[in-house]
Design a protein around this nucleic acid. Structure first.
Lengths: 329, 329
DNA sequence: CTGAAAGCGCTTACAG
DNA sequence: CTGAAAGCGCTTACAG
């Protein structure tokens, strides 16, 4: 690869002048400019981002920390970010924690060392250590999916969405409604969705039998098992079950199908996430679409704005969602 | 952020010596070493990758070019790569072409300018311009999914997999078998899978009516429409259809379900890809599992080996696949 | 065992 | 309008 020095000598000018035409800064006479551009084109010269970054302290790279890269949600999120980011000349440096908490912190550090211009974190659980680390980071930062005070956030309205799903069940005449959740250390998915469900039930004066409430993890098998436990342990079986993720809901449906429960007549089911799967299982699953791609885009816009404004703006954005009413309810 | 200069002065040594303990190179007396380490720990100093890269010409970053980041396949591929790469201290810089061909070439250039240590390309269609560009790149390079001469490749055995699927149909007694493919400019998916199908049919002396062969694109809707055309246009309806991707197969199944065809008794269907969806639709889809995560891992290993060996090895690896026989056949 | 100096490839005051 | 020089934060011969 050629360097600016070689270009300069080929064009009989100084590096300074070449730099000026490269960056369109300062005055350069038309004649000289043309001469330099000609040399650049002939040689196919491209300035080293590396060297440039060292000098300017800008890398045009955004670090993105994800709990996993295998899921649809992550894919859509990243696609949305990339859309916005690449337009502005930024690229994404990926950091995949594989759900290991302490890696989130390591990556925060690592990305900073790599001098990324900003960091977007798809947050799962927030703990004090992480929050503290984020605050002392002092570079543009956006968290998606979980509220963290004093930093920019893109949030989903988990509470209201859960209330809406619960309302939907109730409006369809269900009174005995079960719930499959996840650990509440995940505030958004575990805590808020659960609270939305219980608050709505309470508002309508409906009680929830203890055996109707189960906890699982983020996969299909877990929903299958949770459904099985609910049926086994209930005195009176619920007529509907709200699962906090599509995968849990799909596992539940699978169990019901295998045990000859008709859906929705014997049991109604709803999930959250609008996975592609949800639309193609039998019956199609009622779910809420969080529009992850849009979330990714918004996060990217936020980080770009922070970079522009020198890291001085904190914005909180709560995204809309769409309730997709399908045949499972 | 502190710099090596400050650390040096705090420890009362030269930058050279600090650099030596940082990199474990050359001799440093125990006493001095301890003093320096102490300062490093106290300050939390971490050397700038930026500056280091400029000097050493190594960035510890691998560029990954993908046709899309939204699909499961991409997610798994990247997860596999990241697994291997992060272990070796590398990170992934993402380049998403969104299926725009000319972006592949742009990114090749861009990634080189960013001084990545290597590039992995999840190839879709290979054209001469791209191949030429790759060859003049002169940095470690691996292509996944498509054969490119003179460069390292991770390949799927599309031809044999297609033959196997076709054989499976035939062994189940099918004689009239249809085919839903994609454009043959995608050599792997379009050309080789088609050839495997036709060769196998020919070997068994089975003929294929023209109307049984349709072409779609990479989504579910397209499979739906292709299936519809096959049924509409055939003199004699086939009893089985091989779709070259799961999405096409799932679209076909949807059409059949809507039109009251029983699967597999009225029509057997198979796909390729082992998407999560394939296992949860009704009936579960027979498909082939290419183990994308493994492909990603292997690609990463290959690129690492090339970096180590100074870009002098060209390896071609064809991966195994698993035929997943499920209820749709 | 340790340090002074050059250099990686750029940009940016400063001077003219 | 143009250039000499310093500097970004490191590493690496070279010398001692």
């Amino acid at each position: 690869m050629a360097t600016i020095k070689e270009i300069a000598s080929m064009a009989n000018v100084s590096r300074t002048t070449v730099s000026r035409v490269l960056n369109n800064s300062g005055y350069v006479s038309e004649e000289v400019r043309k001469r330099i551009i000609k040399v650049i084109e002939e040689t196919g010269y491209v300035p080293s981002q590396q060297a440039k970054s060292l000098r300017t302290k800008k890398t045009k790279v955004i670090g993105v920390i994800l709990p996993t890269i295998k899921t649809e949600t992550s894919g859509r999120l990243v696609a949305g970010m990339d859309d916005e980011l690449s337009e502005a000349g930024y690229q994404i440096l990926l950091a995949n924690t594989n759900h290991e908490k302490q890696k989130e912190i390591e990556f925060l550090q690592l990305l900073k060392v790599r001098q990324v211009d900003g960091i977007i974190l798809a947050a799962t659980n927030v703990n004090d250590l992480l929050v503290e680390k984020i605050k002392q980071l002092d570079i543009p930062f956006v968290a998606i999916g979980q509220e963290i005070s004093d930093v920019s956030n893109i949030l989903y309205d988990d509470y209201q969405a859960a209330k809406d799903i619960t309302s939907l069940f109730i409006n369809k005449g269900h009174q005995q409604i079960g719930f499959i959740g996840v650990d509440e250390s995940d505030l958004a998915v575990g805590m808020w969705r659960k609270k939305g469900f219980f608050d709505q039930m309470e508002e309508k004066g409906l009680s929830v039998e203890e055996a109707w409430v189960e906890q699982g993890v983020f996969n299909i098998q877990s929903g299958y098992e949770a459904m099985s436990r609910i049926i086994q342990n209930s005195n009176q079986t619920p007529t509907a079950v709200f699962a906090v993720t599509d995968r849990l809901a799909i596992g539940a449906i699978r169990w019901l199908n295998e045990h000859s429960y008709a859906i929705p007549s014997d049991m109604a089911i709803a999930g959250v996430g609008a996975s592609e799967l949800s639309n193609y299982i039998t019956p199609p699953l009622t779910t809420v679409d969080y529009e992850n791609e849009k979330a990714g885009k918004e996060a990217a816009k936020l980080i770009l704005r922070q970079i522009e404004k020198n890291n001085k703006v904190i914005e909180k954005i709560t995204l809309n969602y769409r309730l997709l009413e399908r045949d499972s309810v």
